[in-house]
């Protein structure tokens, strides 16, 4: 079996100390395999963003362990942790976060170039990644020449350019209308089906429906998950 792309082992995150301590996460254990999209749902303050920041190495747990592709992030120096963030993890944000002065291809190529990949090789990888989200023909467009849905697909292409295998998406459909949001999730689903691993934070159940598993967070604790799926055909029989 393929190793987990992301694993959280009994992760705790506490902000502050003493009586003022806020326990943002309390003993979260989670594994995400290649080809798996896991959605995190919970109300504001339940720990969703903290979990995403820990998964991406942007924050460190107070206790427990975060592993990306089998490497414990706590074992890494700042320099190596930054390299893991650049080479392994990609982010998709609600408001796209594309650089307005760069074209779609330049935006997608940027993380590779920052990691020392040559300009031409980075551009080739960027065009390939744009092709995988169905936007190869828009490679020369600037963000303000694209719709919101197209910009978010560029962001997914950037998150998974090159060898990146873990995409962390924080409310990626929050700024999009229903149909466009669904098209973006379809692209994310396709990229995960092609072998990436995805962690999707959303408050919309309809969008979490695209995930293989849905984790319910409350007050920093996983209270339930949607568990293994049955067969769609059985469900239809029950509906009729």
């Amino acid at each position: 079996m393929s190793p987990d792309v992301l694993e959280l082992r009994d992760v705790h995150r506490t902000h502050g100390t003493g009586e003022a301590a806020v326990h943002a996460l309390r003993g979260v254990t989670l594994r995400v395999r290649p080809g798996e999209l896991v959605a995190i749902m919970g109300p504001s303050g339940s720990g969703k963003s903290t979990l995403l920041n820990l998964a991406g190495g942007l924050d460190s747990p107070s206790d427990g362990e975060v592993l990306v592709e089998g490497t414990a992030l706590s074992d890494l120096s700042h320099r190596r942790l930054a390299a893991v963030r650049r080479r392994t993890v990609g982010y998709v944000f609600q408001d796209f976060n594309l650089l307005p002065s760069l074209t779609a291809a330049e935006n997608v190529a940027l993380p590779l170039e920052l990691d020392g990949v040559g300009v031409r090789a980075a551009r080739r990888a960027a065009i390939a990644s744009l092709g995988e989200v169905g936007l190869a023909e828009l490679a020369r467009r600037f963000p303000d020449e694209m719709s919101g849905g197209q910009q978010q697909r560029v962001a997914i292409a950037r998150a998974l350019v090159g060898d990146r295998r873990l995409v962390l998406a924080d409310e990626p459909t929050g700024a999009l209308d229903s149909q466009t949001g669904e098209a973006v999730l379809r692209v994310l689903r396709d990229r995960v089906d092609a072998g990436a691993a995805g962690l999707l934070v959303t408050h919309e159940a309809r969008h979490a429906g695209w995930a293989d598993r849905v984790i319910f967070l409350r007050d920093g604790v996983v209270i339930d998950s949607s568990g293994p799926l049955g067969t769609a055909e059985d469900l239809l029989e029950h509906t009729s």
Partner: peptide, 21 residues
Amino acid sequence: VQSQRTSGMRALQEYTRLKVR
């Protein structure tokens, strides 16, 4: 509430899979 929510979510996932298919 939670058991109902999980059940609803599971159904939603299944319907989404059917839709993709």
